[in-house]
């Protein structure tokens, strides 16, 4: 406790001191980069120790959200302060406030890109790829020969740089969203296959013997026992796939695209040195990615409420 408070006091005191010394040499010249670097370190430590103190002082129920939030806000504040004090050119690093302004100003463009990339490519591709992987896993489960052949192959493919297939798919399916959705399907298929197969084997021998004792056939055993037991694995694959799907769709846009889409916008705006626009696009990707992930976590909690990691 004492250590936390002392760290907080020292680091915030130091950052205020440095900030004051900056305000005297207004406007910033960028000469004293060592000082602004020290400032970043101090304010980051201040943000961290603030969350540390919050963790110790506040009741436990609130810290789960509050601690990371304070920490994140502290990092953003340090970023803003660094950009303001170091005279770093905007083509290298725009400040959070500039990015937020750009975000609000270009909402229609961002929305069009969101529809093109997320709604047309990521989500359908994610659904199809995960669905196909799941079905393939069921087929493999019925046919042991196929399983023993496909599983090592799937493990191999999981280690391959699959994004490299993007140019081929763009060539086959054209420049518009079908090629991006196809890319997402290819990227999400194997993680789902491998995880579902692992999940289907997760139920214990004892439970399976019990099902056999009840005279349950393969399908009933699947529905009542093995699929519920496989759910943590399946959700794990869905979560991995949600990130992979975003990457696949955006990277495929680098290889040819109509003049809309998040990947297209990023690569062209970098060329035009509009870094604030690129960061606004990144914000869209981060927000929708986190939202996607959050929804999956909620659904996982609902479906696998029995899992030990959710017990209190």
């Amino acid at each position: 406790m004492i250590r936390a408070v002392v760290t907080l006091l020292i680091s915030s005191g130091l950052s205020i001191l440095i900030a004051l010394s900056f305000s005297r040499t207004n406007p910033p010249t960028g000469q004293d980069w060592a000082l602004s670097f020290a400032f970043v370190i101090c304010s980051w430590v201040a943000a961290w120790s603030a969350s540390w103190v919050a963790d110790l002082v506040l009741p436990k129920a609130q810290t789960r959200w509050l601690v990371p939030t304070i920490f994140g806000l502290g990092v953003i504040a340090a970023w803003e302060a660094y950009v303001r004090t170091s005279a770093i050119p905007v083509v290298l690093l725009p400040s959070p406030s500039e990015i937020a302004a750009k975000f609000v100003a270009t909402l229609p463009i961002l929305k069009a890109d969101f529809v093109q990339t997320i709604l047309r490519a990521v989500i359908p591709g994610w659904l199809m790829g995960s669905g196909a992987g799941f079905l393939a896993a069921l087929v493999c489960d019925r046919n042991d020969f196929l399983r023993r052949g496909l599983l090592p192959l799937g493990n191999l493919v999981a280690a391959l740089p699959i994004v490299g297939v993007a140019p081929i798919l763009v060539m086959w399916f054209g420049f518009d969203w079908p090629s991006k959705a196809a890319m997402v399907v290819v990227m999400t298929f194997f993680p789902m296959l491998i995880n579902t197969l692992a999940g289907l084997n997760a139920s214990g021998q004892m439970e399976r013997d019990l099902m056999r004792g009840y005279g349950a056939d393969w399908f009933t055993t699947l529905i009542k026992l093995r699929l519920p037991a496989a759910m943590p694995f399946i959700f794990n694959a869905l979560k991995i796939n949600s990130t992979l799907a975003m990457i696949g769709a955006i990277v495929a846009e680098f290889f040819g695209t109509p003049i809309v889409g998040m990947g297209f916008r990023m690569s062209t705006e970098v060329g035009r040195q509009n870094l604030d626009m690129v960061w606004a696009e990144i914000a869209v990707a981060a927000i929708s990615g986190s939202f996607f992930y959050g929804c999956l976590s909620l659904a996982e909690r609902r479906v696998t409420f029995w899992h030990p990691s959710y017990r209190r």
Partner: peptide, 23 residues
């Protein structure tokens, strides 16, 4: 306290499609 403050951000860092902002 690092686990509570840093760990959520380590996880959040991976929801950003880094490959997409690589350029």
């Amino acid at each position: 306290s690092l686990e509570k403050s840093l760990m959520p951000w380590v996880i959040a860092s991976q929801t950003i499609p880094i490959l997409a902002i690589a350029p």
